[in-house]
C-alpha cells in the first residue's frame, strides 16, 4: 500500500509518501520549498495562511519526489490533531478533498501517535516499548504495546522540555526558540559548574515539571555568581538538569512497567546530551534505547504517512466527516 501523508499541525507544512514494501519514498517540509518568491514578500512563518500557500506545492513536490501519480497512491493520511485548529484544518480539508476526488481511503492521524511510531521509518522495534515524546509542545511517557495499543503514563504538569530549553535560551540572550543553540554552546561548558533543581515529583511519578527551572535560572542570572559565569557553563548545567530528569524518569518508568525497550521521539530527542546520556544509562540498566535520526525527531509527514499505512492496511479508515481536534486525546 502506498500512502500520501500530510501534516500541518503547527509551524511547517509537510508531505510524504510511504510504501509498505519500498519504505519512505518522499519527505518534504515547507521550509525546503521556495514558495515565498512565487507569491512575493516574506510572510510570517506561523499562520494558517502560510499553510494554505504551502500545501499544494509541498504535496506536488512529495508526489514528484516519489515518482507517484494519483493512480499509484492507495490512501491519504493527514494529521487531525492535536494542534492549532486553523493550521490543522488546512491540511485536513486538503487531504479530504484529495481522498474524495481521487476516490481513495482517508485516515486522520494523531500527531502524538505518529511521533511515537516514527522509529519504524528506520527500523522495527519489538512491542511493548516505552516511548518518551519530548518536544517544544509535549513531554509525555507512553506504554506502546502494539500498533493499536498506546497508553499514556504521565506528562508535564507545566512547561514542555523543549519549552524549558527555548525559554532558557531567551534568558541567556540566545534568541527564541533556542533549544538547538543551548545544545551547541553547552558542548563547551561544564555541566557541574552550577546547580539547578530537579523536580522528581515523588518516586513513582511519571509526570514532569520544568517551570521551576525558569525561576532558578532567572534568580541565578541576577546574582554576581551568575552574572560573572560563563554562558557555556550555565547552558551546560541547565541542560544537564533537564536531561537528568528526562533520562531518569524514562528509565524508571520502563522498570516499573517491566519493559526493556525505550524509544525517543520529538524535537528534543535530537538534543545530543539527551541522546548520549540515555544510551549510556540505558546500557547500564540493561534497557535497549532506540533513537530516530535527528531529521525524523522534528515534525514531519513521513510519520503520518507511515501510521496511515499501518492503520489503513488494518482496515481502519475515516469518513469524510473527519474533523480536526485541538486538545490531546492522551491526558489524565
Amino acid at each position: 500500500m502506498r500512502v500520501l501523508g500530510i501534516e500541518s499541525s503547527c509551524d511547517d507544512t509537510a508531505a510524504a509518501v510511504y510504501d509498505s514494501s519500498k519504505g519512505l519514498l518522499a519527505n518534504v517540509i515547507s521550509s525546503q520549498v521556495p514558495v515565498h518568491s512565487l507569491y512575493g514578500g516574506v510572510v510570517p512563518e506561523l499562520a494558517s495562511r502560510e499553510h494554505i500557500r504551502h500545501v499544494v506545492p509541498v504535496v506536488e513536490r512529495a508526489l514528484s519526489d516519489a515518482d507517484s501519480g494519483r493512480e499509484v497512491i492507495d490512501g491519504v493520511a493527514v494529521t487531525a490533531g492535536p494542534g492549532l485548529i486553523g493550521s490543522l484544518l488546512v491540511g485536513l480539508c486538503f487531504a479530504k478533498s484529495l481522498a474524495y476526488s481521487w476516490e481513495k481511503p482517508l485516515y486522520g492521524a494523531d500527531h502524538l501517535e505518529a511521533h511515537i511510531f516514527s522509529i519504524f521509518l528506520e527500523r522495527a522495534v519489538e512491542f511493548p516499548y516505552l516511548a518518551l515524546l519530548v518536544s517544544g509542545g509535549h513531554t509525555s511517557l507512553f506504554r506502546v504495546s502494539g500498533w493499536d495499543g498506546v497508553s499514556f503514563l504521565g506528562g508535564t504538569l507545566d512547561d514542555a522540555g523543549g519549552e524549558a530549553f527555548d525559554k532558557a535560551a531567551k534568558f541567556l540572550g540566545l534568541g527564541y526558540p533556542g533549544g538547538a543553540a543551548i545544545d551547541r554552546i553547552a558542548q563547551r561548558g561544564d555541566p557541574g559548574r552550577f546547580s539547578f533543581p530537579r523536580a522528581w515529583l515523588g518516586p513513582d511519578s511519571s509526570d514532569f515539571s520544568f517551570s521551576g527551572l525558569k525561576t532558578s535560572l532567572r534568580v541565578l542570572l541576577s546574582t554576581p555568581e551568575g552574572k560573572g559565569g560563563r554562558i557555556e557553563d550555565i547552558a551546560a548545567s541547565f541542560q544537564e538538569a533537564v536531561v537528568d530528569v528526562l533520562v531518569r524518569k524514562t528509565l524508571e518508568a520502563a522498570r516499573r512497567e517491566g519493559i526493556l525497550r525505550v524509544v525517543l521521539a520529538g524535537g528534543v530527542a535530537a538534543n545530543s546530551r539527551l541522546r548520549s546520556k540515555i544510551e549510556e544509562e540505558g546500557d547500564t540498566a540493561g534497557i535497549a534505547v532506540y533513537l530516530p535520526s535527528k531529521a525524523l525527531c522534528t515534525d514531519n509527514a513521513a510519520m503520518v504517512a507511515l501510521l496511515g499505512e499501518r492503520r489503513m492496511s488494518a482496515g481502519r479508515v475515516c469518513g469524510l466527516d473527519l474533523n480536526a481536534y485541538a486538545a490531546s486525546r492522551f491526558s489524565r
Binding site: A160, D166, K167, A326, A327, S331, R332
Partner: peptide, 17 residues
C-alpha cells in the same frame, strides 16, 4: 477541568478545555 490538564500552551498557542 481536571488538574494537570492546564499546561503551558506556548508552543501550540491555543489549547481548549
Amino acid at each position: 477541568i481536571p488538574s494537570g490538564r492546564i499546561v503551558s500552551p506556548s508552543f501550540t498557542i491555543v489549547t481548549e478545555h
